[in-house]
Design a protein around this nucleic acid. Structure first.
Lengths: 159, 159
DNA sequence: CGGATTTGTTTAGTACACTAATGATTATGG
DNA sequence: CCATAATCATTAGTGTACTAAACAAATCCG
């Protein structure tokens, strides 16, 4: 017997109902969990004037400072077409500058402004706030993150 | 010592760099994994003329047939404002009908058409295709789904 | 009964996120 | 060296996904 969707019960037959049951779909759990967790960030990021994807860009820039659009896209696994307008909004907020790279005029260097650099201090309080609201242990979250990393690698391999 | 973000290393201090490192953020892993897995569905769902959220609505309707917008929203954890245009597109595709509920004229009943019902047969092949492309075992996926369900519950409790 | 409140859906507005197409710059190879 | 190909970013178009506001229908309650 081959089971083609994951079910809570380990015994019993995998009926066609089980196969297409919403609650058995990993993709559904993934979508709901991602939307839910990102939703937790919304009120926390709002005072900083950041959306969640914008926050991730800032995290990437705090790790390495002038980065091209392509470089950011690889780090965040986002299409340049998604980043392009997002970065313009971050520029309008005053957190980054956008300038053509001198050595390669095709590339666009995205760099932190003083304000963008200063924002990092305020951001230090964000992860603990989210962990607090989630109410899950760091161990649990660590295990989850490792599982998610496996999925991400599996997607890359299967794509 | 309190660790506020999950890190791969269990020993050593949690520096401010670790705290804000992109690769340590569960929200980032969640976002990338969700986008990646949903991306795997894209070529598989395309021949059926469905997007991933539309596919989830169909799954919900195959489980219980006439459902109101609100009911679907609770099942899928989506705002009615998100579902409203999505359901119009499913109606345009010929998979569902949209009619006001006779007993409560506020509510909108979404019901499968014959074509929508028939689509279920073709959908039976989707989960195995995705599992195949992912290349992860059903056990791993089951564990992951259970972890994600915990996160979803934690979000609901903390929101 | 009838005004006030609640509920269900829709619309408006903003912001991702994707694919495909465009345009500009750099790299390549005959 | 120069035509061709590859690379980088942007724009256009579609489809989520959210909040806030609008609207109609049903419910509540004095």
């Amino acid at each position: 017997m081959t089971e083609l969707t994951t079910r809570s019960e380990t015994a019993g037959p995998a009926t066609s109902d089980d196969l297409l049951a919403l609650e058995n779909q990993v993709c559904f759990a993934l979508a709901v969990a991602a939307r839910g967790v990102i939703g937790l960030y919304r009120p926390i990021l709002e005072p900083l004037g950041l959306t969640h994807p914008q926050y991730l860009v800032m995290l990437a820039l705090w790790q390495r400072n002038p980065r091209t659009v392509r470089d950011l896209g690889e780090a965040l696994q986002l299409e340049p077409a998604t980043l392009s307008p997002l970065l313009k909004r971050l520029e309008a907020q005053g957190y980054v500058t956008r300038h053509r790279n001198a050595r390669d005029e095709r590339a666009l260097d995205v760099a932190l402004t003083d304000e963008g650099r200063a924002l990092r201090e305020r951001a230090l309080d964000i992860p603990p706030q989210v962990v607090d609201r989630l109410g899950m242990s760091l161990d649990e979250l660590g295990v989850l993150r490792d599982h998610l990393t496996e999925v991400i690698d599996a997607v890359r391999a299967g794509a």
